[in-house]
Simulated assay, not measured.
Amino acid sequence: MRRTQLALLTLGATILAGVVTVAPAAAGDYPWCAQGGEYDYPGECAYSTYGQCLASVSGRLLYCGPNPRSAYGQQRVPPPRPPRRTRPVAPY
């Protein structure tokens, strides 16, 4: 009885540790999404290449599209360059 309780406690702790350490990927990380069918917009955005997405949707009545969060998001604007320093010109 004692061994069974210890085994169940160990199993539970192992499963809990596995669940706690797994972090879901953010949707903005990958540029391609499987869209249509059972997926809401923007879809399952878990593919780094178009080929990976095509392989995943094959036979599932889905299609691949760009991740709108990465494709149509606001682009970063570089900060303006500081004005160029010039030496004063000596009068004649």
Rank of each mutant, 00 (worst) to 15 (best):
D29G: 09
R81A: 12
Q52S: 15
G43S: 06
A46W: 07
A90V: 01
A17R: 05
Q52P: 11
C64G: 00
C45G: 02
Y50V: 02
C53R: 01
A34G: 08
N67M: 10
L16Q: 09
P24S: 12
Y72S: 05
A90W: 04
P24W: 14
G59K: 08
V20E: 01
Y41H: 08
G12S: 07
T86Y: 13
R85C: 10
Y47C: 06
A13S: 12
P42I: 02
V22R: 14
Y63D: 00
Y72T: 04
A25L: 12
Q75S: 06
R2A: 01
S48L: 13
A17M: 02
A46G: 14
Q52A: 15
T21S: 07
N67G: 09
V22Q: 10
L62S: 05
R60F: 04
Y63W: 08
W32M: 06
G51M: 14
R85W: 08
L61Q: 10
L11M: 12
A90M: 07
T14I: 06
P80H: 12
S48D: 15
V20Y: 03
A55T: 11
A7V: 05
G28D: 10
V57L: 03
L16N: 08
R87C: 07
S48R: 15
W32N: 05
Y39A: 06
Y50G: 02
S48H: 14
A27G: 07
E44S: 08
V20L: 01
A13C: 13
